[in-house]
Design a protein around this nucleic acid. Structure first.
Lengths: 127, 127
DNA sequence: GCTTGACCTGGAGTGCACTCCAGGGTCTAT
DNA sequence: ATAGACCCTGGAGTGCACTCCAGGTCAAGC
């Protein structure tokens, strides 16, 4: 048995996660990995299973609008270990509130747009 | 009775619509008004009721992620009159699809985050 | 042994939607 | 008639999240 279950190149992780190679490198520079990304003998990045899971979660955070610096802060806490669980919890809870609120607003705007669409449908049909 | 029901200064419209003065001027440059914004004798902008309604709708479109150029296209169609109703309808319907899809994705990501929050709650409680 | 392809680095460039600025005009109240 | 508030213009600057680039290394296949 090997110490790392998975062992992906950057292009493999890119394909798997839907994040581009450039963005993966950018995330690394922005300190969004909990621990330094492993390298092979030639200096190429090798990602393990935990990296895959991490990137997927980062993607969730991004998809809900969390900024890079906030994710970096979350990552920093994760690096410090279990003691920071309460802080990480608080951070995620606050983010969730933002997202829920944003969803509400988007839904409200969508309703207004749908109303407008209904108007157009009526007008177009009446021709 | 006057020909214009409302007659707002740019700061009044800004306050009313929640859009900054600079952004209102920016929207004007970007051609997001159906017809030229009226000016008083001194060259200052005067907004009527239709402008208010229009800006509010533009805000809905922005809030749901429609880009400035697409709104400009929608505006261009509006300028051409009722004949473009079918095109405007199509444009809004396509946008609605995008938004609905985006909402779905955001909700899915939010679910993943909520799951993570539940994990943290469990861990923090178990201490 | 040489090409091909994947990868590396630091740094520059991009697109978007604002947001700010300098320098100037005008209206109102004191 | 002077101060202060509000508005004007063209253009520059900002923040964010990528995205691209030049120039180079390295391993594998022909």
């Amino acid at each position: 048995m090997s110490t790392t279950t998975t062992d992906l190149s950057i292009s493999a992780l890119a394909e798997l996660s839907g994040v581009t190679i450039d963005t993966l490198r950018y995330y690394e520079r922005a300190d969004l990995f909990v621990r330094p990304v492993r390298r092979d003998e030639a200096g190429r990045r090798r990602y393990g299973e935990r990296d895959v899971i991490w990137v997927q979660f980062v993607t969730r955070l991004r998809a809900t609008g969390m900024g890079i610096t906030t994710i970096a802060e979350y990552t920093r806490l994760a690096r410090l270990g279990e003691v920071t669980n309460p802080e990480r919890l608080a951070l995620l809870e606050e983010h969730r509130e933002h997202v829920v609120e944003k969803l509400r607003e988007t839904q409200a705007s969508l309703d207004a747009i749908s109303y407008k669409i209904a108007e157009y449908e009526r007008k177009v049909a009446d021709l």
